[in-house]
Simulated scan of single mutants.
Amino acid sequence: MATPVTITQIAEVAGVSTATVDRVLNNRPGVNPATVQRVRQAMAELGAGAPVRGRPRSTTSFRFAFVLPAARRGFFDLVDRVVAQSAGEFRHQHITEVTRRLPVREPAAFADELAQLAEMDGIALLAPDTPAVKLAVNELVRGGTHVVTLFSDVPGSMRETFIGADNRAAGRTAGLLLGREAPGGTGTCALLAPATRYAAEIDRGIGFAQVLQERFPGARLLRVDDMPETDDEACLRVQQALAPAALGGERLVGVYNVGPGSHGVHRALEGLGHAGEVGLIAHDLLDVHRAMLLSGALGFVLHQDVQYAVSTAARVLRALCEGVRGALAVSSPRVEILTAENLA
């Protein structure tokens, strides 16, 4: 009778990840023939019959990487902190977590460093949506590494699921909140968007524009693209874009900032005499946004449960590695509307 062995033992002998072994055993596509042969040869060397599912929990762990951009944005740093704070929870689940901050200004460099994580069992990825990143994701999945996207999707890639709030719905929510500020459905609503390759920020802008067009056709949408990320530069950009001459005499009723730099945006509005009379909406409950809500500088913050999303990503990756049926059946975090009155 063939001796039962674990997936971990097969992976060690074959020199591949446990995720790759799982794909071969379940006849799933995406593993190249040479790798399949190595796995089957390892099974033969071990005298393996039907391998035992899972791993001996006392001796091994799943290896997951949380991959984030290296840019010093407040939200990216927040996610980094939440992952670090979840280390204890991960240990109880026999998960070894590593966090990688990759260079985002050079998409090719980001993709190259991402591809070097091929021996991880799973990757939770927050990345720009570029062709190079798509190719890297596809190669990882073909090699047997499970990949889920986190907070911002990479659509069109072979990633297995997206975990995060519905960003288009978030943008629609911002449009509804600001559109109602327009008297009689008229006035100017400004959409501030960085020069971005993040699908999350693109979807927010699409949702915002959709709602204004559908529900507030009398309101004018003013797009301010190429917003800088630093507060000082954002302040200068808004001062120019929302100056009285740029508004053409129309009343500014609301500003939706889909990216960073909210404090600089507020300073510009204050300098233009709009502070206190123009609604300003931003994303994510960062420390600066909490202070701005309490001071009245921000009207609303659209927020999602970062801790839930990080924990869900790890849980989904583990379930995928274990071949659990329904591993991808998870609920997305809801978009919360935070004000100065409902802060926790």
Rank of each mutant, 00 (worst) to 15 (best):
A136Y: 08
L176N: 08
G279D: 05
A174S: 07
L317Q: 09
V21P: 12
G218I: 04
I281A: 00
L78P: 00
E119C: 02
V24G: 04
G187T: 01
F110K: 03
D80F: 13
H303W: 08
T96P: 00
A209I: 12
P155Q: 09
A245G: 00
P131L: 08
R81M: 07
T20P: 14
E214S: 13
G171P: 12
V278E: 06
G248S: 09
H146F: 15
E214V: 02
P333I: 01
R172A: 14
R73D: 08
I202R: 15
Y198Q: 10
V238W: 00
V154W: 01
A319P: 10
L78I: 03
L269H: 04
R91W: 00
G156I: 05
H92N: 12
P217N: 02
P228M: 12
R204A: 10
I7K: 11
Q41M: 12
E229I: 13
A234V: 09
L177I: 10
V104S: 09
A291L: 14
N342T: 03
A314N: 04
T60Y: 11
E214R: 13
L25D: 06
P228L: 10
H92F: 06
A291K: 13
A111F: 05
A195Y: 06
E277G: 06
E214C: 01
M158I: 00
A327Q: 07
A34G: 02
P29W: 07
A329D: 15
T230A: 13
A109I: 04
L68K: 03
T145M: 07
H289F: 03
